[in-house]
């Protein structure tokens, strides 16, 4: 092993320069040239400043807003500086009581009967705690409440949700999804159209 000291150090030095400096910096340069908005965090900037990243969910609770998924981040939900899932196991009693509470809350909030099944994504915490999306079904459930709170027609809310919805890739891969932040910014009229980098 003694004779490996010099080549090992030289190799580590060369790799550090090549793969630790040249590679990430070249990638940064090219990515910033090709996709400046996406490579910088997909930030929505309006007149009064940066309002969020279309890829990082925000907490919403008000009746006027589309409410996203539960978030397990600490100390507050959707704490972007510390992504985390709940890590609760499938038979955990803690998880069971959390989900029962959320289902009951969702039924009350949206004015649903007590036997309506609630979309799974609306009552389970995401893996990152920052999931920016909802399933179309979970969003559709909230249309009449949002329309009432904003005194607009349900159809106008539906059309906003449709504009904030992305389909499966090639109709095959992934899931259709509504971007909660984009939908709420559209509802508030902060932005007139979904950002191009969404």
């Amino acid at each position: 092993m003694r004779e490996s000291i010099r080549p090992a150090l030289v190799l580590l030095g060369a790799f550090t320069v090549l793969t630790g400096v040249v590679y990430p910096l070249t990638t940064t340069l090219v990515a910033q040239l090709l996709f400046p908005a996406r490579a910088s965090g997909s930030i929505v900037v309006v007149e009064d400043g940066a309002r969020g990243s279309t890829l990082v969910g925000q907490p919403f609770a008000g009746t006027r807003y589309l409410v996203g998924r539960p978030s397990a981040t600490a100390p507050v939900p959707y704490h972007a500086a510390a992504s985390a899932g709940s890590q609760l196991g499938p038979v955990s009693p803690v998880l069971d009581s959390l989900i029962r509470t959320r289902v009951a809350e969702a039924r009350v909030r949206e004015g649903l009967a007590s036997d309506v099944a609630i979309p799974a994504d609306l009552v389970t915490a995401s893996g990152s705690g920052l999931d920016p999306h909802l399933s179309p079904a979970a969003a559709a459930l909230q249309v009449s409440r949002i329309a009432t709170a904003r005194a607009v027609t349900p159809d106008s809310v539906r059309s906003v949700l449709a504009r904030a919805t992305a389909p499966r890739w090639l109709g095959l891969v992934g899931e259709p999804r509504v971007n909660v932040l984009v939908a709420n910014l559209l509802l508030d009229g902060v932005i007139a159209a979904p950002p191009s980098f969404r």
């Binding site: 799974a120 389970t124 999306h133």
Partner: peptide
Amino acid sequence: TQPGGNMEGKEVRFGIAG
């Protein structure tokens, strides 16, 4: 319009399959 299944700890854009 929805993934269903065990969505605890999963992201909507990937769903159950992904």
